[in-house]
Simulated assay, not measured.
Amino acid sequence: MASGTAANQHSKWRTPCHQCPLRSLSTFRDFSAKELEFVAQFKSGELSAERGATILVEGMHSAHLFTLLSGWAFRYKLLPDGRRQIMNYVLPGDLVGLQGSLMEEMDHSVEALTPVTLCLFERSKLERLFERHASLAYDVTWIAAHEERILDEHLLSVGRRTALERTAYLLSFIHQRAHSVGLNGGARRVIPITQQHVADTLGLSLVHTNKTLRKLADRKLMRWHDKGCEILDEEGLLALADWEGLRDGMRPFI
Rank of each mutant, 00 (worst) to 15 (best):
T212K: 00
D218H: 11
G203F: 02
Q195C: 08
V207G: 09
D226W: 08
I191Y: 00
G203N: 04
K211G: 13
H197K: 04
W224K: 14
G228A: 05
A187V: 12
M222W: 05
R214V: 15
V198M: 02
S205Y: 04
L204I: 03
P192R: 01
V207I: 13
L221I: 07
A187R: 10
H225I: 10
R188G: 07
G186W: 02
K215C: 09
G203Y: 03
R189Y: 05
A199S: 10
A217Q: 14
Q196N: 10
H208Y: 12
R189E: 11
H197N: 14
W224Y: 11
M222R: 05
C229W: 02
A217E: 15
V207E: 08
M222L: 15
H197Q: 09
K220N: 15
R189Q: 10
G186T: 09
Q196E: 13
T209C: 11
S205P: 06
D218C: 02
K215N: 12
K211Y: 13
R219G: 07
T212S: 08
Q195Y: 10
G203T: 04
L204P: 01
I193F: 06
A199Y: 00
H197S: 04
R188Y: 07
K211A: 15
I193Y: 03
R189G: 05
K227Q: 11
S205M: 05
G228H: 05
K211D: 13
T201P: 01
L216G: 00
